[in-house]
């Protein structure tokens, strides 16, 4: 009854091999779970878990799915998919973890950025004015101006979010028990915590993507708006 196997394929193993592999799979899973409950640091545990689960993966594919015995074309088409899937998954994780999206490099001394000729440039003059306070530059560089109005700040024209003109004067009264500074800080760090009536929860939580220095300057600037 081996007639369906290709001449170049190796004969299938005896049943005892399947039972051994099954036993190994169970033991490895038990080791994984046990390791999970041991008090080992994550930089030790996570590589161990990954190696162990890779081992299980390979065992099932080689013995239960017969790739160890079957023709190499079967292995090739599967491994092609597997490698690409792994590549895309790791590529995306790397891109999102290391190159925080929305975090363009910040020049030490901002110079005017040339823009494509648009009908109405978002910022008159085409760049961020280097004479503005650092926090105001951050406000413009981070695109906050696309959603918030601040009277007197050129380019701060968006109407999706609340008008921030005179923010410092009312921030302290917004939430009982929070000072103006605490309120502004938390509003930037966790925009969904305090929604202004009539506005949706649309603001990006940008705190993770900007540096401490820039964040402090932004808070400092917002607290000057009287």
């Amino acid at each position: 009854m081996e007639s369906h196997r290709h001449p170049s394929e190796r004969p299938l193993p005896p049943i005892s091999v399947y039972l051994y592999v099954g036993a190994i799979l169970i033991i490895v899973t038990a080791v994984e779970v046990a390791a999970f409950y041991l008090d080992v640091p994550s930089y030790v545990l996570i590589p161990i878990l990954i190696v162990l689960s890779l081992m299980k993966f390979v065992l099932v594919v080689m013995f239960f799915m017969h790739l160890r015995y079957d023709h190499k074309i079967f292995s090739s088409v599967f491994i092609l998919g597997l490698v690409l899937a792994l590549g895309i998954t790791l590529g995306l994780i790397t891109l999102f973890d290391n190159f925080d999206v929305g975090n363009p490099p910040v020049a030490a001394a901002p110079t005017p950025i040339p823009t494509i000729t648009l009908a109405t440039p978002a910022i008159p003059g085409g760049g961020v004015d280097p004479n503005l306070p650092a926090g105001a530059q951050a406000f413009l560089n981070r695109g906050c101006n696309g959603c918030h109005v601040i009277e007197g700040l050129p380019g701060a024209v968006g109407v999706v979010g609340p008008d921030l003109t005179g923010l410092a004067g009312r921030a302290g009264d917004r939430v009982p028990g929070l000072s103006a500074e605490e309120y502004v800080r938390q509003s930037v760090e966790a925009p969904q915590d305090f929604l202004v009536e009539g506005y949706d929860n649309l603001m990006l939580p940008l705190r993770d993507t900007i540096g401490d220095e820039e964040f402090e300057s932004l808070v400092e600037y917002l607290l000057t708006l009287r």
């Binding site: 998919g81 899937a85 998954t89 995306l92 994780i93």
Partner: peptide
Amino acid sequence: FLGSECLFFGSLIATHMI
């Protein structure tokens, strides 16, 4: 088909990891 499925589940796992 299983090679193709690798990319299906790979994308879903990537979404979860991110």
